[in-house]
């Protein structure tokens, strides 16, 4: 049985006379026990999808079922079985760590002790601060507490909306380690994130842009599907370089990536030397040009461009 099954789902928001399509006729299957990533920029529709799955919102069209239950009809049963962590810290800031956890345990008619095993590893990290008010915790600590609260009733599915946004690199790594160990305990986890580098940590990912799935596959599968030559370029004047490279007809998909520009040749006949020669003719200094392995972000940019053109 699939943990999540979404068919032809659409959701739009209307403010005044403007209608924004948040999700356009999307379909998705997530297998039980998977660590699934929904990757996309801000405004892609990640939160809308998760809110529909969490039964907080109803779709305009299409169906979504979670753990075999329909999100519209059986929402009460779903709420017992899922853990949802909103993008914004949504626990009581004026209650202490312990009180928050205790409160969410009791409203699920359970206790901290009953399911301590599941949260033990995470809770031990915040236990030294258990008397502290939740509002006074650091960002990373808040996320850990929120995760504990989402887990306290032993859900079989965890929906996480941008859990690592605004959290430092160390805490982000820790957080993903925690997710991996939760997955080993049999939990299905769906994570929405704008960070492309987190994609490789998921079993499968869905690339979401403007309410449409661009691709759903394993991270390596997605890269393999779009095996194309990718070049990285650097010089001492990056801004001029970007303009020059974009104006050259030999390459396409030029975008800055860290300290390099990434671009791919228009046709496989184009040689990397031609680009270097062109840039030299434009009087660029300290030019570095090399061929690289594409990352998820490169594929995403490529797909997004293709999608916009079509």
């Amino acid at each position: 049985m699939n943990a999540i099954s979404v068919r032809n789902l659409s959701k739009s928001y209307t403010t005044g006379k403007q209608t924004v399509e948040a999700l356009c006729n999307i379909s998705l299957q997530v297998a039980a026990g998977e660590l699934f990533g929904i990757i996309g920029p801000d405004g892609a529709g990640k939160t809308s999808l998760l809110r529909i799955l969490a039964t907080l919102m109803q779709p305009n069209a299409g169906q979504a079922s979670v753990l075999g239950l329909d999100t519209t009809k059986d929402y009460k049963a779903i709420r017992q079985k899922i853990g949802y962590m909103p993008g914004r810290f949504s626990l009581y800031q004026d209650l202490s760590v312990e009180e928050n956890l205790d409160f969410f345990a009791t409203i699920f008619k359970t206790s901290i002790d009953a399911n301590y095993q599941l949260i033990k590893d995470i809770y031990e990290q915040i236990a030294p601060f258990k008397k502290r008010k939740a509002g006074k915790l650091s960002g990373g600590m808040k996320q850990k507490l929120a995760l504990c609260c989402a887990l306290i009733h032993k859900p079989s599915l965890l929906l996480l909306d941008e859990p690592t946004t605004g959290v430092d690199v160390m805490s982000r790594k820790e957080f993903w380690d925690m997710l991996a160990s939760l997955q080993q305990q049999g939990l299905t986890i769906v994570v929405a994130t704008p960070y492309m580098d987190e994609a490789s940590l998921c079993d499968r990912i869905a690339l979401l842009d403007r309410g449409n799935f661009l691709e759903i596959d394993t991270p390596s599968g997605i890269i393999a599907n779009h095996q194309s030559t990718l070049w990285a370029v650097k010089s001492d004047n990056m801004y001029q370089l970007l303009q020059d490279t974009r104006s050259w007809s030999g390459v396409t998909n030029v975008f800055p990536f860290g300290e390099y520009l990434h671009c791919s040749p228009h046709s496989s006949n184009t040689d990397i030397k031609e680009l270097e020669a062109y840039l030299l003719s434009k009087k660029q200094q300290q030019i570095v040009v090399k061929q690289i392995e594409p990352q998820i972000e490169d594929v995403f940019m490529h797909l997004m461009n293709k999608h916009h053109v079509s």
């Binding site: 969490a54 907080l56 709420r79 017992q80 949802y84 909103p86 949504s90 800031q93 969410f104 699920f108």
Partner: peptide
């Protein structure tokens, strides 16, 4: 405003 209602809404309360 704080968003806590969101968290309450996903509970069976």
């Amino acid at each position: 405003e704080v968003g806590t209602i969101e968290q309450i809404n996903v509970t069976p309360v």
